[in-house]
């Protein structure tokens, strides 16, 4: 794989993560537990959508085949999506969503924090802006994990179940492979080695869970495959909904 296609692939991984999670969070609009939370969740979704657009646009530019953000979002099939499985799982109840938000925002925070010094200036600029957004997402999720974990018996039980639901998808976030090895090698790396994020992520999430009176589930068999386009059945349905109108009118402008 040329360095150019490696860069495209890397940008797609990051962009697809953000796009698919934005789509999932959009499902909460007009369904949140309180009006204030409707506004907050929409803000997180909007930030992620903005990140996705910047990253997909950049992937298209580097690829140089004339694909823009919409061509990449609407005309790829699920086998071509590169997001981690974590973000495509159905939203579940508010506890499942909160658990995923904590896991993912804490991961994204460590990632973007380091990607700010990428040798690739565009990625560095995207990361520089995104890290502030993600800092807020992580904080928002943290506040809710504390409240649900240390709230009522019911919320504690649901929060534990939420962690159980998302935990099989945690390991995949930190998987290194040939692509990340190639892009994160040398003195001026383009990418961040995902494995390097595990410890700081663990420290943050572990502390939040401990304060909330929760424990990370242990001995959970990990699920992976998203980075290679081997997804769960859920992604196909998510994309069917996302893409249907756009594909019904090939070539149209919206």
């Amino acid at each position: 794989m040329s360095e150019q296609s490696q860069l495209v692939e890397y940008a797609l991984r990051l962009g697809d993560d953000a796009l698919v999670l934005a789509q999932r969070l959009g499902e909460w609009v007009a369904r949140a537990p309180e009006l204030e939370e409707d506004v907050a969740m929409a803000n997180v979704a909007l930030d992620l959508l903005g990140q996705a657009r910047a990253l997909l646009t950049y992937a298209g530019e580097v690829e140089g085949a004339g694909r823009d953000e919409d061509a990449l979002a609407y005309w790829r099939d699920d086998r071509d999506f590169r997001n981690a499985l974590l973000v495509e799982a159905p939203g579940g109840d508010f506890a499942v969503t909160t658990a995923r938000q904590l896991v993912f925002a804490a991961y994204q925070y460590e990632l973007y924090e380091r990607l700010r010094s990428s040798a690739d200036q565009t990625l560095a600029a995207i990361a520089g802006k995104a890290v502030k957004e993600v800092h807020y997402h992580r904080d928002h999720a943290t506040q809710w994990v504390l409240r649900l974990g240390d709230g009522t018996e019911e919320s504690h039980r649901r929060m534990r179940a939420g962690l159980d639901t998302v935990w099989p998808y945690v390991d995949e976030l930190f998987d290194a492979d040939d692509l990340t090895a190639a892009l994160s090698a040398g003195t001026a790396p383009i990418a961040v080695d995902p494995a390097e994020l595990r410890d700081p992520w663990q420290a943050y999430v572990g502390a939040v869970l401990a304060e909330a009176g929760l424990e990370p589930p242990d001995d959970v068999p990990a699920r992976r495959g998203g980075r290679q386009g081997l997804h769960t059945e859920h992604l196909g349905h998510l994309l069917a909904e996302l893409q249907h109108l756009h594909r019904s009118h090939p070539g149209a402008t919206w």
Partner: peptide, 15 residues
């Protein structure tokens, strides 16, 4: 929102 025909329109509608 889930079916908006471009990412720009999706962002606008969500906002």
């Amino acid at each position: 929102i889930s079916r908006a025909p471009s990412l720009r329109r999706k962002a606008i509608l969500l906002a």
